[in-house]
Design a protein around this nucleic acid. Structure first.
Lengths: 338, 338
DNA sequence: GGGCAGGGTGGTATCGTTTCCACCAATGAC
DNA sequence: GTCATTGGTGGAAACGATACCACCCTGCCC
């Protein structure tokens, strides 16, 4: 019994007589034999693993991404290795290097800093396909799948302006991220165009700072009449603070957040948000990556196929009660004021 | 320049002259050389990867687990491969097999079915260490790290009984999981001991079924005066349904949930819950796994070290307003009824 | 001065698999 | 009857890194 024959049995059993096949299969079963993946890889096979580099798994946005990408990977017979950076550029570089050493076939990355030259340089030298998710890599040909953050924030700001609010406070949270900067840019431009004063606060990092910021602004001269929060956690901190301070929403200040969350429609008042197509972003990113992997497998170096490389997805405004849309929505089925 | 020398440079540069070392390092840099992981593994090295098999990444409980385990893995120089089963025992077996073929050093698993003989048999034949998390594997020596679900549900039920509620409805959600069954068992035993009627409902799977169940029970004879929900999502469905139906909490029915969640303390009323030490469970599971890996590395086959194999962690009751503790807690800083 | 220790270096077998090639038997075509 | 064709089989090289061993050289001790 030659090793060649055994190999053939394992890889589909072509060119092997039925009885030999049965015999070998039985032996494999009996010995609990498992082919050594490392040796196969060494012979040039792909590792059937892809890497995912994100800030955090616990963040609902990215856990949903991870879930969707994992599904795409599984559909393509691959495994997903997840690493987290906490938005630290150094950890990000480390993670990418480790993944490359582990021979991942490709990787999906949410860059902490879209403009890092270090990162761009590293990515340019990589031999495996990379897809950026949620945040692009500036000045590079790395394909990306992102939401239209600018448009989303324009929609939100215009919506608040449409309600007649004139003192719209924007709570940014961490403002170094690409997504947040885009939203800030959109907010500022829209406010300027409307000829209203820009009110930016970048200090809110947790519940305490939210309470402090909101309390002092509300008790000052010219208090805000609406708050636009630029990310999930900031929205929740702001909401908690407003509740704690007993500020009527939207009576005294309206609230509009970025990113939907499970209880947004349940809390009183229900919270209006800009909703991103998270699952679609992730799924597309996965598909773009595997398209590249398949291309690469097919034609060794004919260059990229004609696939779209920079995908930007629309976001949607979900008006609920907290921005003042209460009368016509959200409260419809309830009867708080029966 | 011999390959041996290069290898030595890469692995710490012992027994290499300084100038050779520099020369080789420079060449490595210039060529962008990355050592082939597969070849190293083939020589008997560990893959520095561990597998995680969980129902879902999007579930907050498991995403927190994944985050913590990933941190432990990283601290031990390993990568984490995450796979999801949606609680499907077949997918679970598949995932384990795939991970084993990929030569993971070990794996952490939240078994869909603690009593599956298939699973037990598979795990017994594995050559890599396995640690069960959240749910044990029955009749096996697989180490496990779980929360004390029984005790948690006893605490919850007793707390509700202590408030004087006599018609405590238990909404189980999916009731096939080990954790849920333990909680059901505890609820039933505690109710029996107190001589009160057991009210179980296993039908709630989403918002709609929650609304239907709660509406029909409340409008029937002998309606419940408290609801105990056995998992995160069920708590939220029940809360949504109660809000929608305009049922005063805890005035008409009290609510107590299993698993804490971010907005539990913010919504009105704030929701009382049994809190599990999620992060600690995950961290311990990771540590137990890596302890085994280190042992195995040190002494080839001296058997298991004397480490604790079955860890059960205490859970904590977090009383808030929804169970009726409102007067002394939770509402303290607010003034809804000012 | 001869041997010996030890740092620095390179040759080569080895890990487990795939794949190219060679080979053997039948079978059928001319 | 010979020659190609085809199905079934095995030998051995190759993938890229490691580690054993052998080797050379320098310096030092007896």
């Amino acid at each position: 019994m030659g090793t060649t024959t055994v190999s053939r049995v394992i890889n589909g059993g072509h060119r092997v007589s039925p009885e030999t096949l049965l015999q070998v299969s039985r032996a494999i079963e009996a010995l609990g034999y498992v082919p050594n993946q490392a040796a196969r890889i060494l012979k040039g096979y792909s590792t059937k693993t892809v890497g995912l580099v994100i800030p955090s798994i616990a963040d609902p946005f990215f856990s949903q991404c991870a879930e969707a990408i994992q599904a795409v990977a599984r559909a393509n017979g691959s495994l997903l290795i997840v690493t987290t950076t906490q938005n630290d550029p150094r950890a990000e570089i480390d993670n990418i290097n480790v993944l490359v050493r582990h021979q991942v076939d490709g990787l999906i990355l949410a860059p902490a800093n879209s403009h890092s030259p270090m990162l761009r340089q590293l990515l340019d030298t990589l031999r495996v396909p990379v897809v950026a998710i949620d945040r692009p890599v500036a000045h590079s040909r790395i394909p990306s799948v992102v939401a239209d953050n600018f448009r989303g924030a324009v929609l939100a700001t215009e919506h608040l302006l449409g309600h007649g609010y004139k003192r719209i406070l924007c709570l940014t949270g961490e403002s170094t991220l690409f997504t947040i900067r885009e939203r800030i840019r959109a907010y500022c431009l829209t406010m300027e165009k409307a000829g209203v004063e820009i009110l930016l606060d970048t200090s809110v990092k947790d519940y305490k700072s939210a309470e402090y910021a909101i309390e002092s602004l509300l008790s000052g001269a010219n208090p805000p009449d609406a708050i636009f929060t630029l990310k999930n956690s900031t929205t929740i901190y702001a909401f908690e603070a407003l509740q704690k301070l007993n500020v009527p929403i939207p009576g005294r200040v309206a609230l509009l957040g970025y990113d939907d969350f499970e209880l947004a429609s349940t809390v009183r008042p229900s919270i209006s948000v800009v909703e991103q197509p998270i699952e679609e972003i992730a799924r597309l990113a996965g598909e773009v990556l595997f398209d590249q992997l398949l291309d690469r497998e097919a034609q060794s170096s004919t260059g990229r196929s004609g696939k779209a490389q920079q995908i930007k997805l629309e976001t949607r405004l979900v008006p609920r009660a907290s921005c003042g849309c209460g009368s016509r929505l959200a409260e419809a089925a309830s009867s708080e004021k029966s």
